[in-house]
Amino acid sequence: MTLDVFLLILRLLFIVLLYLFLMQVVIAITRDLRKTAAASASLDNKAPPVVGHLIVVDSGPSNILPGTRFDLSPQTTIGRGPTNTIQLVDNFISGEHTRLWFRNGLWYVQDAGSTNGTYVNNQPAREALAARFGDIIQVGFIRFKLAQ
């Protein structure tokens, strides 16, 4: 065997190894994607349970119809921004207005730094306030009843 043949073999070996590596990486990626697809499918099946509703009692200056029901998941945010669980388009609602969460059979309501405030039974909810079903929650100038 002459040296240039040997060098050619080394060269081909290098390219083969490079592509084998790429193949290995792509296989790892597809496996990963399948796994996350399966995981997200199983997550979708147990979508966040609805543990309560907000029913509009007084729509204030907004054009939301009284009686509208909003589903509440154990962690709910209300605001004008697109990332909120409940998006309310109204000039008196801040981007991130109110946070609600459900723990040990009780709802907790806290203002998320809004301009027009959040109230539970007319008490300002600057700190987290506990709320029971039937209580009135006011977000900006819209009043809701917390219902099951």
Partner: peptide, 26 residues
């Protein structure tokens, strides 16, 4: 997985390191 994926890079690196002096000699 990471260790497994490192094997071929190690082979490539050793291969090229071996080739370098041979190519120089050539």
């Amino acid at each position: 997985k990471e260790l497994g994926l490192l094997i071929i890079p190690f082979m490539i690196l050793v291969l090229e390191m071996v080739q370098l002096p041979i190519a120089h000699y050539f």
